[in-house]
């Protein structure tokens, strides 16, 4: 089976920062806004290199979203930066009316998504943001898996005309996708071919899915691993084609099972190819303080959890 090498742990938010730095040089219409979290979002370089195109808005996220919507009127491509919680739930109505319904070309870039921001605890650990954002008509929702892919996604969304939610995280995680990849919005990536079970994962859970596929292989189970970096629009064909072969599926995400990737996959399959499915996701709960690894273990979001879910779903075929 195909394996992937971790070229060294890196945080996905730094991938965003690197992408933004590059965009600053290559696309003069790109502007950036931040709500008092420049360091956390890795926007320092953009601010330093392009102070005239950088807007420090203070701790005022609602105003930031409105400013971004307004900046598009005049041809700018605004990238907003704050934590995922404050990028979505806190400003849902501003995004809904001033960005999504108004069809504005705003890129909502959200770090510290999910449990893995760690010790700050549940107030900052949003596990509902994918659901919130995917429900908005016209919103593209992307959750890349590592540093390289987050950088590539950041570059790609600047060329996409329309609102985008780009979700990434705080911790250093395996960096294993190609540095020179071209990011194609809405196009799932087949990472490992397999015959017995399909694992569809997004974000930090993609590496965990790869680790799970190795463990399963040692047990004689052939798992197919698909990286769904784009939750909306969902690559339904890639999922249906894989499941046509494996006849069962596990979805894996750092998000509530309500409203997440798993439900989007279930909708596709229930319409086109009803299939046994297990969900690796949080179970309608808030998070808590802890290290990222402790939290992923406690809430069942690591490779062990994926292995167990695969073994369970195979029995249901």
């Amino acid at each position: 089976m195909k394996t992937y090498e971790n070229t060294g742990n890196k945080d996905t938010r730094s991938g965003f920062g690197a992408g933004l730095t590059e965009l600053g040089k290559t696309n003069e219409n790109v502007v950036a806004l931040c709500a008092d979290l420049i360091g956390s979002l890795k926007m320092d370089d953009f601010k330093k290199n392009h102070p005239e195109r950088f807007y420090q808005v203070g701790i005022a996220e609602a105003n930031m979203i409105g400013l971004a919507a307004g900046l598009t009127i005049g041809g700018k491509i605004p990238f907003t930066g704050t934590f995922a919680n404050f990028s979505t739930g806190r400003v849902y109505d501003q995004i809904r009316q001033s960005v999504a319904y108004s069809g504005k070309n705003v890129k909502i870039c959200a770090s510290h998504a999910g449990l893995t921001l760690g010790e700050d605890g549940a107030t900052h650990q949003i596990l509902e943001d994918i659901g919130l954002m995917k429900m908005l008509p016209g919103m593209t929702v992307i959750n890349p898996c590592d540093y390289n892919q987050t950088k590539a996604a950041t570059l790609a969304i600047a060329d996409h005309d329309g609102p985008v939610y780009l979700r990434f995280g705080r911790p250093s995680v395996a960096n294993f996708t190609p540095a020179d990849q071209k990011f194609e919005i809405g196009k799932a990536l087949h990472l490992v071919e397999g015959a017995d079970v399909t694992i569809v994962a997004t974000g930090h859970l993609v590496w965990e899915a790869l680790e799970a596929s190795k463990a399963l292989n040692e047990k004689g189970i052939s798992a197919e691993v698909i990286n769904i970096h784009t939750i909306k629009p969902l690559d339904a064909k890639a999922i249906i084609d894989s499941v046509s072969k494996t006849k069962c599926i596990v979805t894996a995400e750092e998000h509530n099972h309500l409203g997440g990737l798993g439900e989007s996959v279930a909708r596709v399959l229930s319409q086109h190819l009803p299939t046994p499915q297990e969900f690796v996701a949080t179970n309608d709960t808030f998070g808590e303080s802890g290290t990222p690894a402790q939290l992923m273990e406690k809430y069942g979001l690591n490779s062990d959890a994926i292995v167990k879910a695969c073994e369970k779903v195979i029995k249901r075929k």
Partner: peptide
């Protein structure tokens, strides 16, 4: 811009004003 849900227009207008300065 769409408006109706109140309180959002000034932020949008300010964004447009900033875009005018950039342009």
């Amino acid at each position: 811009i769409a408006s109706g849900s109140l309180g959002q227009g000034m932020s949008v207008a300010l964004g447009a004003a900033q875009a005018k300065k950039l342009n």
